[in-house]
């Protein structure tokens, strides 16, 4: 009898908690997704409707004028930015994975004679940094990267100590020193060992970290904000950045001159550009979600 009532209480408390959990998580999922719907519906609203009633989730007057503007009228500029973003992402991610994994691998080698000092050299950059001003001055005055494509990849993006440490701990845990010794006895050079043994065994970590790096490159807007002033070199994010600030000036002007933006779909077009900027990520996300979650939990739990 007593046991029965205990079980009842237990199952009731469990059920209440389950209901609360579902309720909270449904609400949060809703809050996370709904803003994207506003972005998408805004880009599909007719310009006249936008001027009349503003952005809404279910416009009365749908229109693809904004996309016509993006893909036909102005595709020359927007397409170029898209291409630049893709190139930065591919080249940046490849280079970044290459030098990060190399350094992480060397640090994971217990027989490496400069291991301690090099670890400190890498690690110290996590504790201390020079900040924006000296970084900006050295990149522009010493390395002259202003308005070059290197500006998208070099400053702050190519490698960071945190990823090196993640790689290092993966190699330490997953690649047995005996394997490397055996290859050496067979006469393999260090380069061959890295290429033929270490890399094939490290595909999971390369995928996880590569994904994080790739998203960073795709989303980066700070480097072009600091270092790129030429319009024909803008990536998608920097194009979006300029439109965000220049429509602001446009709308201020429109106030003074009485709505001069009525003909061009500028209000919906900016949303359409934003949509095509996030679309690849939104579409691919369900497929790489697993790696993304893994990457986050890796960062939280250190070696």
């Amino acid at each position: 009898m007593e046991e029965e009532s205990i079980r009842k209480i237990r199952s009731r408390s469990e059920r209440i908690l389950l209901i609360i959990s579902h309720a909270v998580l449904i609400f949060m999922s809703f809050t996370a997704i709904v803003p994207f719907l506003l972005l998408i519906s805004s880009s599909l609203t007719s310009e006249a409707e936008l001027v009349r009633t503003g952005y809404s989730f279910w416009p009365k007057e749908w229109s693809i004028d904004a996309y016509r503007y993006v893909f036909v009228t102005n595709w020359k500029n927007i397409g170029r930015s898209y291409l630049i973003t893709m190139m930065n992402t591919v080249i940046g991610t490849t280079l970044s994975l290459f030098i990060t994994s190399l350094l992480g691998y060397v640090l994971s080698r217990r027989d490496y004679n400069k291991r301690a000092i090099l670890s400190f050299f890498v690690f110290f950059t996590m504790l201390f940094n020079g900040g924006l001003v000296p970084t900006y001055i050295s990149y522009t005055r010493i390395w002259h990267i202003k308005n070059t494509f290197a500006a998208y990849i070099l400053p702050g993006m190519l490698m960071n100590a945190f990823n090196v440490m993640l790689m290092k701990s993966y190699f330490t845990m997953n690649i047995h020193p005996a394997l490397i010794e055996a290859a050496k006895i067979d006469g393999a050079s260090e380069g061959t060992i890295y290429r033929k043994i270490v890399m094939p065994l490290s595909l999971p970590i390369l995928a996880t970290i590569g994904l994080m790096i790739g998203i960073n490159f795709w989303n980066d807007w700070q480097n072009p904000l600091y270092y790129i002033t030429k319009q024909n070199m803008w990536s998608l994010q920097s194009l979006l950045n300029r439109i965000l600030s220049s429509i602001q000036t446009l709308s201020q002007m429109a106030d003074k001159m009485g709505g001069m933006t009525a003909n061009m779909p500028s209000t919906s077009a900016r949303m359409a550009i934003a949509v095509i900027g996030v679309l690849p990520i939104l579409v691919l996300y369900p497929f790489f979600q697993k790696y993304f979650v893994k990457g986050i939990s890796l960062g939280g739990v250190k070696e």
């Binding site: 994207f36 980066d220 807007w221 965000l244 900027g277 990520i281 996300y285």
Partner: peptide, 12 residues
């Protein structure tokens, strides 16, 4: 769903 906002750039 709740990870989605983490993925997009702050410009968006």
């Amino acid at each position: 769903a709740i990870l989605l906002p983490q993925l997009i750039s702050i410009i968006i």
